[in-house]
Amino acid sequence: MNEKKSYRLPFFLLTLVLVVGFLVNISWGSIHIPFEETLNALLGRPTETDSWQYIIWNYRIPKGLTAILVGAGLALSGLLMQTLFRNPLAGPFVLGISSGASLGTALLIMGASFFSGVLTQGLIGDISITVAASIGSFLVLFVVMTMASKVRDTMALLIIGLMFGSISAAIVSVLSYFSSAERLQRFVFWSFGSVGDLSWPQLTLLLTMILLGSILSILSIKVLNTLLLGEQYAQSMGIDMKKSRFILIVATGLLAGSITAFAGPIAFVGLAVPHLTRQLFNTSDHRILVPAVLLCGAILMLFCDLLAQLPGSAKVLPINAVTSLFGAPVVIWLLVRKQKMVF
């Protein structure tokens, strides 16, 4: 925490990688647009064809920004949960946020057949999926938060979150079993996750939520550092654990909840990026880790999105698969190389 160790260089390099990653990300896609033309479009200069201008501003830039927000937000919420639960296996979804979102979406897409007539096929648009996912995730979060005020043991909360996950997974299975192939496919597609297709207003809403979550996290940095010793030590140093736990859960809910609503349940990033970052920076100080996971998460997501693009083809791989395919080996490699898990 003092050490006089400077983290300026790694932060500078990561920011550079982020900027380059973003530029490469938006110049890359199913339609080939030369890099110079991408820059022209970005700088407001005319491009060869107007459609490039349109593609970049209305499709690629929102997608790149979504990738940054999703990666950064998931990574940060993963860090919050790992520190709060002092468990390296915790991620943004331990509180049942993604299962809540899955349940909401599953009920909308597949449950609709149970209530046919109430919800017609036409109603199941992207917006209603977002709404259903938000309602689902925040409902579960609300229940977990109510329980958080009742149970004293933070670890019990972890188990409660996992149990909610099991319950929703079971309901989703039942729904899938009775669902038509077409609707099931729709649900599966949602569960692959996607950072594309967000309109500017949606992006603004996502940005607002991520900013709120980040501000709460930054205000909790001191608490997070104290939690490295455990809750009883934290209490003995004047931290109000109940209040702090509540704030951390709200922050995670805002981050992971909004991301899941807009981009689907993207696994792995939230679990892996904090570990990746700790290995890179070799510190547990949250004053370093909070900005570092934001950067690393954003970078990882940009690159995964890039890989998902399959250049030269209109096909896009499910982002959920790419994050794990690309990210898991990196984490394994780091752990094996260092022979030591830093937590």
């Binding site: 925490m1 550092n225 010793l229 455990g230 140093m237 937590f343």
Partner: peptide
């Protein structure tokens, strides 16, 4: 303690 990745100085500094 939950995290043993702290240096001795960092841990004492938390005091």
């Amino acid at each position: 303690i939950a995290s043993k990745n702290l240096t001795v100085f960092e841990l004492i500094a938390l005091g």
